[in-house]
Each structure stands twice: as C-alpha cells, then as structure tokens.
C-alpha cells in the first residue's frame, strides 16, 4: 500500500511554527504521512531525515529571512547524498525576487503568506504523482 510521505522541517533558528504545523495538519488530513522534525534543524539534519525516511517530498518552513543560505545548503547536501530527485518546497516570508532565485536554484515551489492550504496539498500531490 503506497502512501505519500512528506517531511515538514523547520531549518534554522526561527521558532514560528504555526505555518509548518497547520500545513502538516492539512497534509495529514489529506491522507499523507507527515514527518515533522521540530524546530532548529540544521541542513544536515533535514537531509538526513529525508534520506532515512525516504520521503517523497520535502517542505521547508523559514520565516527568519535566512532562506537563501538554508535552501542552498539543503539542496547541495541532497545532491551530495544522492537524493536530489526529491522535490523541495518552501513556505514563509520570501520576497518575490528571492522566490525566483530559489526556483532557479531548484526549489519546486515557494508558498508565501496567504497561500490556501488546498493549493499546497494539490501542488504536493501533483509533484509526487509526476
């Protein structure tokens, strides 16, 4: 029996986890298995969790403004560990030009404030089905 497995991670030091947790609840209610890492994860820990849990997709929630550095590190580490085929999406306060930059870097989707939960769920389902 196949189920979509999602990693919801809070990399960096930022402690605002309302968004991450609300999204995690929505994903669970959409029938997915959600691995939640808790606060203050290093890029290393995030990638390790993704690797050991063999998730289908990775969600990073970042509200501290440290998104560029964190995403770059996570993507590089994923490549190094051989799991760069897994899609990564980012949620948080991300300025539009940074969002563009992140997508160029290889981030699949950037969800800003006010994104409907349904859009996130659909987007993840779509990415996994591909």
């Amino acid at each position: 029996m196949k189920r979509v497995k999602v990693l919801v991670a809070k990399p960096g030091l930022d402690g605002h986890d309302r968004g991450a947790k609300v999204v995690a609840m929505a994903l669970r209610d959409a029938g997915m298995e959600v691995i939640y890492t808790g606060l203050r994860q290093s890029a290393d820990e995030v990638v390790k969790a993704a690797l050991q849990e063999d998730v289908d997709i990775i969600g990073l929630s970042i509200l501290s403004g440290a998104h560029m550095r964190i995403c770059e590190k996570v993507l590089n580490l994923m490549k190094e560990k051989g799991i760069d085929e897994k899609p990564v999406f980012v949620g948080g306060i991300i300025p539009a030009e940074d969002a563009l930059e992140l997508k160029k870097m290889g981030i699949l989707e950037v969800f800003g404030p006010g994104t409907p939960l349904k859009a996130i769920v659909d987007s993840i389902k779509g990415a996994v089905d591909k």
């Binding site: 189920r3 995690a24 994903l27 669970r28 209610d29 959409a30 029938g31 997915m32 298995e33 959600v34 691995i35 939640y36 890492t37 808790g38 820990e45 390790k48 969790a49 050991q52 849990e53």
Partner: peptide, 28 residues
C-alpha cells in the same frame, strides 16, 4: 488516522542524539 489514512510521525523530535548520530538509522 482510521479516517484519512494520514499520520503524524513526530518521533524524530525526541530522538535528538540518534537522529544526529552518523551510526544510527532512524525510521518512522
């Protein structure tokens, strides 16, 4: 969840040493 089949797997939060260790394999 018996209704949706979804699940929260949150054990890694409390398994700080094991998830940091290079030696231990943790799977939810």
């Amino acid at each position: 969840s018996p209704f949706t089949g979804g699940a929260f797997l949150g054990d890694r939060i409390r398994m700080k040493s094991s998830t940091k260790s290079e030696e231990i394999f943790v799977r939810s």
